[in-house]
């Protein structure tokens, strides 16, 4: 748009109207992450604008807004692991738990430590920064979104479902609960992830059927299939947890996935 237009349109800009439905409040809490998770959220493109227009007020997020201290909020999207040698980080994660009704660990770092699982300090100017913990080792986390970077579409789905859970009618709340259940169970399952999970919790358990979902999920191409079964190159794996979460034999909730057509339509409709 040329500047002249901008000036003209600026004059006729009307007062912002309050949206009809009540929105939920959402914050982005940045711990020791790379901001790739936030970029993923932003990569919903126009969908992000719709989410902010209709469903969620962004009340905190140092990268996007000027609010300097963690406010009360419905949903905290936490990115990154927590350096326990850094006082501010530890305070912030505690405060996040106190201020947020729902804490979502977004991305491999927050869920499982991801690359910070390799950190071992010794680097000036803060050589003592050597221990980075997944958020769930310090506070109770409600929902997990593994992956590195996590997918924009999953972050979007969780945002829409969180909205339905907190503001929807009974039927919508039930759907949201069902949808979020496995992501809550992943949070309960623990704070460790590795490509080895495919061996330990799928192949060793007699559950692998060789679909290939895990290899497609891996963000560092650490997984190949040899005669139909996964092989993980452990010297590539960054411990993001995407492969196991993606595996249909980690969880498969018939009550939700069987309804894929309807749920996809619902989510797409919500973002129109």
């Amino acid at each position: 748009m040329a500047t002249a237009d901008v000036e003209k349109k600026a004059e006729i800009t009307k007062k912002e109207e309050k949206p009809v439905a009540e929105k939920i409040t959402v914050g982005h809490v940045h711990m020791s992450g790379c901001t790739g998770c936030l970029v993923s959220l932003a990569d919903n493109y126009d969908g992000l604008l719709t989410i902010l227009d209709k469903y969620a007020d962004l009340v905190y997020g140092l990268t996007l807004a000027d609010v300097r201290h963690i406010p009360k909020m419905d949903v905290a999207l936490v990115e990154g692991s927590v350096c326990i040698q850094d006082k501010i980080s530890v305070e912030e994660i505690r405060e996040t738990r106190e201020k947020a009704a729902v804490v979502v660990a977004v991305g491999g770092c927050a869920c499982y430590g991801n690359i910070t699982r390799f950190s071992r300090g010794g680097q000036p100017n803060q050589p003592q920064h050597e221990s980075f913990l997944p958020v769930g080792d310090l506070i109770k986390v409600d929902v997990y979104i593994p992956g590195c970077a996590p997918c924009p579409q999953l972050i979007r789905n969780v945002c829409v479902m969180a909205y339905l859970l907190l503001k929807g009618n009974q039927e919508q709340q039930e759907l949201a609960k069902k949808y979020l259940t496995p992501l809550m169970q992943l949070a309960d399952r623990g704070t460790e992830a590795c490509g080895c999970d495919l061996m330990i919790d799928v192949v060793n358990q007699g559950l692998c059927m060789g679909c290939g979902s895990c290899a497609a999920a891996c963000p560092v191409r650490a997984i190949t299939h040899e005669y139909g079964k996964p092989n993980v190159n452990r010297e590539m794996c960054i411990k993001c947890g995407a492969c196991y979460a993606q595996c249909p034999r980690s969880f498969f909730n018939f009550d939700v996935i069987t309804e894929f057509e309807g749920i996809s339509e619902l989510i797409n409709g919500a973002l129109q």
């Binding site: 020791s32 850094d86 690359i115 390799f118 950190s119 071992r120 680097q123 560092v220 590539m236």
Partner: peptide, 16 residues
Amino acid sequence: PVRGVEKLAINKTMDQ
């Protein structure tokens, strides 16, 4: 916080 990538890199593979 310093995640120490330069130091954690030592003795890892050039691919990783």
